[in-house]
Design a protein around this nucleic acid. Structure first.
Length: 270
DNA sequence: AAGAGACCCTGGATGC
DNA sequence: TGCATCCAGGGTCTCT
């Protein structure tokens, strides 16, 4: 499941490969995807990340937003592609030299949008890699919210880029119970959490993301963070800090892994 | 208005 | 072995 580090890795990889290339056509195989009329060829200026979106910025000011959701993959094929068909293929971007970028997506949740104006970029919360991400900023946001910290961290309108894995990892690292109410966090906890989020995401980016199920880099290679993750997916295994069995509960409809000892709820519940 | 829950979708895991 | 059922989960929509 691509989250910030995976999307950042993909965007960086693609930026090196695609900058300067001209798209001569986009073939869409998913009827849910609707694109406006596009005047080809379109030259790609840069590839970047906006929250969990991969953004292809064309030199004419238009933008293509790609969201991988759960199982989306962007795979680059340098050689002239022989067969445009492939299982679970959502779309193929074909370039002037015959190379191509395939959007493969088993669960079909991924999206492609073509934007004519920059102002249409979806509005997102603060990005953990931006300069405005700070404990003070988080404290301000948390103060207003009665919801659980876990579901808050997953709300892209509040903080952008975190998904289930890195939210759990950050909460474990900062010793905060996922069911705690955002507004109840002490300044000390908020500082620890802000630090943990930055640390977890930077570490994951260094490892080029986590490959748990479908995530792959544009060249087909895997990420390495799954080898260092501390709680996610470790139900019933010992906590790496205290040895107590990791628990798994549902918070806001999502699986949450945490240590019942290190991440104790002050009220004593779970 | 904010928050909770259903929904989308398919493959893999589990149960009988 | 084979079929049915359940589950995963990001984001959007609907309902409260």
């Amino acid at each position: 499941m691509p989250e910030l580090p995976e999307v950042e890795t993909i965007a960086r990889d693609l930026s090196k490969i695609l900058a300067g290339r001209e798209i001569t056509g986009i073939f869409v195989f998913d009827r849910k995807i609707k694109l406006p009329r596009i005047k080809f060829p379109v030259k790609i200026g840069a590839v970047s990340r906006h929250g969990k979106y991969v953004v292809l910025s064309a030199s004419n000011g238009e933008k293509c937003l790609l969201h991988l959701r759960m199982t989306g993959e962007l795979l680059f094929e340098g050689k002239r592609i022989e067969n445009r068909q492939r299982k679970h293929q959502k779309a193929v971007f074909v370039f002037k030299d015959g190379s191509a970028l395939r959007f493969v997506d088993v669960r079909r949740f991924g999206t492609i949008e073509w934007l004519k104006r920059e102002t249409e970029l979806p509005r997102l919360g603060v990005d953990p890699f931006s300069g405005s991400f700070s404990p003070e900023k988080l404290a301000k946001l948390f103060k207003k919210s009665s919801r659980t910290i876990k579901s808050f961290l997953l709300d892209q309108q509040k903080i952008s880029g975190l998904g289930n894995i890195y939210a759990d990892e950050s909460l474990w690292l900062s010793g905060i119970n996922p069911t705690k109410r955002s507004s109840s966090l002490k300044n000390r906890e908020i500082e620890a959490l802000a630090l943990a989020i930055g640390k977890v995401l930077r570490e994951a980016l260094k490892k080029r993301g986590s490959t748990l199920r479908d995530y792959r880099r544009p060249d087909g290679s895997s990420g390495g963070y799954q080898r260092v993750k501390k709680v996610y997916g470790r139900e019933d295994e010992p906590c790496l800090r205290c040895g107590v069995k990791i628990k798994r509960i549902k918070v806001g409809g999502r699986s949450s892994y945490y240590c019942p000892s290190c991440q104790r709820n002050p009220r004593g519940k779970s």
